[in-house]
Amino acid sequence: MLEPLLAVKGLRKNFGALKVTDNVDLNVQKGEIHALIGPNGAGKTTLIHQLSGNLRSDAGSVVFAGQDITRLGMAERVHLGLARSFQITSILDGFSVLENVAMAVQARSGSSFRFFRDASREDEINIQANKALARVQLADRAYRRAGSLSHGEKRQLEIAIALATGARLLLLDEPLAGTGHEESAVLVELMRSLRGSHTLVLIEHDMDAVFSLADHVSVLVYGSVIASGEPSTVRSHPDVRAAYLGEEEIA
């Protein structure tokens, strides 16, 4: 078997007596779309926080592309190629759409301790930012104020920003959260188009989207991975049906 791009071993996080992440093992192969599902409160977002470096882990290890990143902060992990999006849209409302993305390009384009040149006129940065916007189909929104975008467009912008960091692996925390039917169709198509160029770890509640996109599904319940495998295997796994799906039938 290939060396996984992201290998998580024995990861733990406790909030007081509550085991939010309980001995999680996870392997993400290069180029796959790996969905992380589980009922509310299963600890999915906490796990993303730990993987992205937003939250320190109590135990265990995270290895990315062969390098142990367990102790690294969020900014350092981004530079290595691991970026995240946020469940609650987290963009710079007061900046233009282009600048939101340009900021992420700037972060990997040499030192930002440059004090005299107008950053908004740096062609090289703007060109790359426009490319990321084109990839999420927001090119025609480049000069609008980010805060004025529709909800679906903001979710697209979130992904454009993650892409613009130059990351190989994107941790997407509920990219479809709060979107309508048409908006979510656009986003699903967008994620599908990233297959091949990027590796995605995806938290999502929309089961239609998960089972149409994912190459690999892991199920998290009470902080533990109870099943992990191909979508069809996971779908029929008895523990998953009992613990997570309950009476609800997977479409």
Binding site: S52, M74, A75, V78, M103
Partner: peptide
């Protein structure tokens, strides 16, 4: 938080 998430300290 957004700034850290794109790689700035």
């Amino acid at each position: 938080t957004r700034m850290r998430a794109i790689g700035f300290s």
